[in-house]
């Protein structure tokens, strides 16, 4: 899906020096993969995400979206049609007065015929479970519902990949779960590639793959188990690990013979149960 080659993004700061928000990042993201990108504030993870649909362009290196280079101006629109983007604040990205018009906005701009638009809106709303709200005003919906409408708007453009930049940061636990369930279902059932930028480690654990960006560098790249089984390293990078991983590794370090790489409550339970039967 994405082939990132030595991607660097530098910009001029106030005092005239050059600052590299991204510095020589290379990686490949396969079609159908669910990738989480984590990093502290200012690490460059959002800048990275914005390159994936050519919202910003590399100052050095290149990025190919299904073989199309973002450096070729005529590729920009095909790339943005393939790669949709959902932002953090649902109130800043919804514009229409009625939900179905909101969802139709993207395909209308692509010049899709009316009949086709109607089908796409129906399909997109069904996929995010918001069909019953089609005649509602987006302003009257909850945060989680608004984000699902934003996702439907992207789906109506029939993308191959959706980039979500902290889509749940402003939501309550119920809204977060709604959005995460929706995104996982799209990935599983529709085969849509997902790149999720997040501060919530519980969300990153559910991905196929986790990229850790630190000070503009790609410093870790692996499965959640590989990335989160070293809490010390993650904490040194200013990040957290999920609770079960943290507990397991602390117990392991204290000398209890448990596996240090538990990712879920269930795995931690499995690891600790043998000790209990001996009490």
């Amino acid at each position: 899906m994405f082939d990132v080659r030595h991607l660097t993004h530098a910009y001029e700061t106030e005092d005239g020096t050059s600052f590299k928000a991204l510095d020589d990042v290379s990686c490949r993201i396969r079609k159908g993969e669910f990738t989480a990108v984590i990093g502290t504030n200012g690490s460059g993870k959002s800048t990275f995400a914005r390159h994936l649909n050519a919202l910003v362009l590399p100052t050095e290196g290149d990025l190919f979206v299904e073989g199309l280079s973002v450096r070729e101006p005529e590729n920009i629109w095909p790339i943005r049609q393939k790669v949709g983007m959902v932002f953090q604040n649902p109130d800043n990205q919804l514009i229409a007065a009625v939900v179905e018009e909101e969802v139709a906005f993207g395909p209308e701009n692509l010049g899709v015929p009316r009949e086709e638009i109607l089908t796409r809106v129906d399909e997109a709303l069904a996929k995010v479970g918001m069909t019953q709200y089609r005649h509602h005003s987006p302003a009257m919906l909850s945060g989680g519902q608004k984000q699902r409408i934003a996702i439907a708007g992207v789906l109506a453009m029939k993308p191959d990949c959706i980039i979500l930049d902290e889509p749940t940061a402003m939501l309550d636990p119920v809204g977060r779960k709604e959005v995460m369930d929706t995104v996982h279902e799209l990935n599983r059932k529709e085969g849509i590639s997902v790149v999720l930028i997040t501060h919530f480690m519980e969300e990153a654990v559910t991905a196929d793959r986790v990229l850790v960006i630190h000070k503009g560098h790609l410093v870790m790249d692996g499965t959640p188990r590989e990335v989160f089984s070293d809490p010390e390293k993650m904490k040194a990078l200013g990040l957290d690990v999920p609770v079960p991983a943290d507990l397991a590794s602390m117990l392991h370090k204290k000398g209890l013979a448990v596996r240090a790489d538990c990712m879920t409550d269930e795995e931690l339970g499995d690891a600790l149960c043998p000790f209990v039967s001996k009490i």
């Binding site: 943290d246 600790l272 209990v276």
Partner: peptide
Amino acid sequence: ADALYRTLREGTSC
């Protein structure tokens, strides 16, 4: 982790 370790370690020693 401290508390868990204390209970579970005692458990294993007996």
